[in-house]
């Protein structure tokens, strides 16, 4: 609190104290870093968090410049409410879906960088040319307190604009409801109808395979294995599939099998020529036949496995 008071004092005079200078440089680094993070992070969640950091830094900047009320509003409304809204939507739309780095529009990235650079240079040059040295400071305006001063202005000079923003907020609230509300045009299908539909369409009439490999893994993100060792994609829910969050354990199983067979061969003392060709983990989803070029070997290896058991 005392720090804020001292900051206020500095703002009042119009010049900056050394404390404010130090504070500015720290905050500026945080703000620019957050902004760059927002721009460069691949995942939307990270972008949102970086933006929140920038907004917090800006809130402190506001307070340092004598706009205490705005600083608080920035924290409460922006960082608190709006950013939370962003996070909600990010979660709703797909938290993990990351932008691909590959630009699809030809020259867009280059042109954007060029424009941004040019704009930044122009702005900086414009500010530098403006010769802004005399700062009046807010000592007089904030004499009876920042909030009181703002209130006086809002309810006198800007009262009409204030009323209109009220109308704007109500409109926005109703608009958001209209946009996201979905009316059921017809009654939702019952389970009986869905079942009939499935039979009629003849797509996957029996239940989908359950996920997990019993006795070893039963998490929902682990696909079941088909008899040939490949994975059953249907056994994992579509959302996880889309995000690529499937843990494929089939190769692990095959590796274990190969290890077992080689141990058995060692124990039996077989020469390397008689050993089955399964030497390492197989690629997932490959047809089984491709890995067994000689069908003649098949009975022998089966026999060996049985013998090993």
């Amino acid at each position: 609190m005392s720090a804020a008071t001292s900051l206020n004092l500095a703002a009042v005079t119009g010049a900056t104290s050394t404390g404010e200078a130090v504070q500015f440089w720290v905050l500026a680094v945080i703000a620019v870093g957050g902004a760059l993070g927002t721009l460069l992070m691949r995942k939307a969640v990270h972008s949102a968090l970086c933006l929140a950091a920038t907004m917090l830094a800006l809130a402190v900047c506001y307070m340092a410049q004598g706009a205490v009320f705005l600083g608080v509003v920035q924290i409460v409304v922006y960082t608190g409410a709006i950013m939370m809204l962003f996070l909600f939507v990010v979660m709703l739309v797909g938290v993990t879906s990351a932008d691909s780095l590959k630009e699809q529009l030809k020259g867009q990235r280059f042109a954007a960088a060029l424009c941004g650079l040019g704009f930044g240079v122009l702005m900086v040059a414009g500010i530098a040319n403006a010769k802004l040295d005399s700062f009046a400071g807010l000592g007089e305006a904030n004499a009876e307190g920042n909030v009181q001063g703002l209130a006086r202005l809002i309810f006198t000079k800007y009262v009409w604009a204030f009323e209109v923003t009220g109308a704007l907020l109500i409109t926005a609230a109703i608009g958001a409801m209209v946009l996201t509300h979905r009316e059921h045009v017809k009654a939702p299908k019952t389970q009986r109808e869905l079942a009939a539909q499935r039979v009629a369409d003849n797509i996957q009439v029996p239940p989908l395979p359950a996920p997990g490999i019993y006795a070893r893994h039963n998490a929902v993100d682990i696909p079941a294995l088909l008899p040939d060792g490949s994975i059953a994609e249907d056994s994992v829910m579509a959302t996880l599939r889309e995000r690529g969050q499937i843990r494929d354990v089939s190769q692990e199983m095959l590796a274990r099998m190969a290890e077992l067979e080689s141990t058995t061969a060692d124990w039996l003392g077989r020469p390397p020529s008689e050993r089955p060709p399964v030497t390492g983990p197989r690629k997932a989803l490959e047809p089984v036949a491709a890995n067994h070029p000689a069908p003649a070997n098949r009975p022998a290896s089966d026999h060996d496995e049985e013998g090993a058991e």
Binding site: A67, Q74, V77, S134, L138, L153
Partner: peptide, 18 residues
């Protein structure tokens, strides 16, 4: 707002937030 010594700039910023 700080430069000019009045609160109008802050009011506009407030409206911008709304």
């Amino acid at each position: 707002s700080r430069m000019h010594g009045n609160l109008d700039g802050q009011i506009i910023a407030f409206f911008t937030m709304v």
